[in-house]
């Protein structure tokens, strides 16, 4: 019987923007944030988002970033939105390459032999998502046109749309995309999360319960808007 030795798994990983690393006040701000909840950040895995930043082309720079973060008890495990050359440099110091964020900037590759791969089509689920079921839309959006039962879990790297009652959990921007959003016709969720920031049922504003809602991350906080 064939066994897959490397299995799929889902982790919530924090992202540090490389542009912030260059900011002189970065270390001070980081120390403050960590100070608020040191246990949460101890040995926490972090991904470096190199989007829109010049440099970071040598293994040394990545090593230095890793050391700075380690000084604050964070563990740099990979890079995101890296160009091929950066991926190589990062790999040289043992960093992984994470899936790019949904909104790709115009980082025009110098020359590419082949056209970029087409954006993955949204994952569409039309049958009710039953209790105990987990659906993961890798690298794309998830659209559900039926009810999601309590005890069911929807995860997407992109947005999540539920054209039905959302009674289970919805985790959008699972790969760290803070721009991901959750849309549902009827909010009754057990838990909603975008890029790791979450609210449980009790914390959802009661005026939105049972209504059509859009959930987005605004200034690092989950905000709900009636739609």
């Amino acid at each position: 019987m064939a066994i897959n030795l490397v299995q799929g798994a889902l982790f919530t990983v924090m992202v540090v923007r490389a542009s912030m690393l260059r900011d002189p006040s970065f270390e001070h701000e980081l120390a403050r944030q960590i100070d608020r909840s040191p246990r949460f950040f101890r040995n926490a895995p972090v991904v470096l988002d190199v989007r829109g930043v010049g440099g970071f082309e040598t293994a040394d720079e990545f090593a230095r970033a890793r050391d700075i973060l380690r000084h604050y008890t964070l563990v740099l495990v990979g890079v995101q939105n890296a160009a091929p050359a950066q991926v190589e440099a990062a790999a040289a110091v043992g960093l992984a390459s994470f899936a790019p964020t949904a909104a790709q900037p115009a980082r025009a590759p110098a020359e590419t032999a082949e056209p970029p791969p087409p954006a993955a089509r949204s994952r569409l689920v039309t049958a009710p998502v039953r209790s105990g079921t987990q659906v993961y839309a890798r690298g794309t959006d998830l659209v559900v046109t039926a009810a999601v039962s309590p005890g069911a879990e929807l995860v997407a790297d992109g947005n999540i749309h539920v054209y039905g009652a959302l009674r289970g959990r919805a985790l959008a921007g699972a790969n760290g995309d803070t721009g991901a959003r959750i849309f549902c016709s009827r909010l009754d969720a057990e838990l909603v999360s975008i890029a790791g920031q979450y609210l449980v049922s009790d914390q959802l504003p009661s005026e939105h319960r049972g209504h059509s809602v859009e959930i987005a991350l605004v200034d690092d906080r989950l905000t709900l808007t009636r739609i």
Binding site: A127, R130, S131, G132, T133, S149, P150, G151, A152
Partner: peptide
């Protein structure tokens, strides 16, 4: 809740 779970299992 449990019926919902078993329906999910039946379907898969």
């Amino acid at each position: 809740r449990d019926s919902d779970r078993i329906i999910g299992i039946l379907s898969s």
